[in-house]
Amino acid sequence: MIELISAARCTGCNICVAACPTNVFAPSLSGPPVIARQADCQTCFMCELYCPEDALYVAPTAGAPLGLASEADAPLPLGTYRAAIGWTPATAANRSVDAMHAVLSAK
């Protein structure tokens, strides 16, 4: 479940407000969007992929957030998923890494 927005990283671009499929965020006039409807979060991690600043952290638990006070408490640095799928400039080569064929053909 969506856990936190890092005020230090967020530029207030509101991309996450548009991209979240369940409309969890609400824009604020100044500063980061607010997590307005946390209970509607479907733990899909898509907001992390669309945030250009790696300012969001989705807790792995689907039922409830972990209760982290700040990004410093997150078990892993922010932005690991975006890097893994190749959506950061430095990791773009990962976009065409997909070994599903090897998994599917295994006996």
Partner: peptide
């Protein structure tokens, strides 16, 4: 080898595990 393939096939499968340690 299969562990590596699974990670490369579906990074999102491992997100919850990695984040829970």
């Amino acid at each position: 080898a299969m562990q590596a393939n699974m990670r490369a096939a579906q990074p999102n499968f491992f997100l919850p595990f990695d984040r829970m340690g």
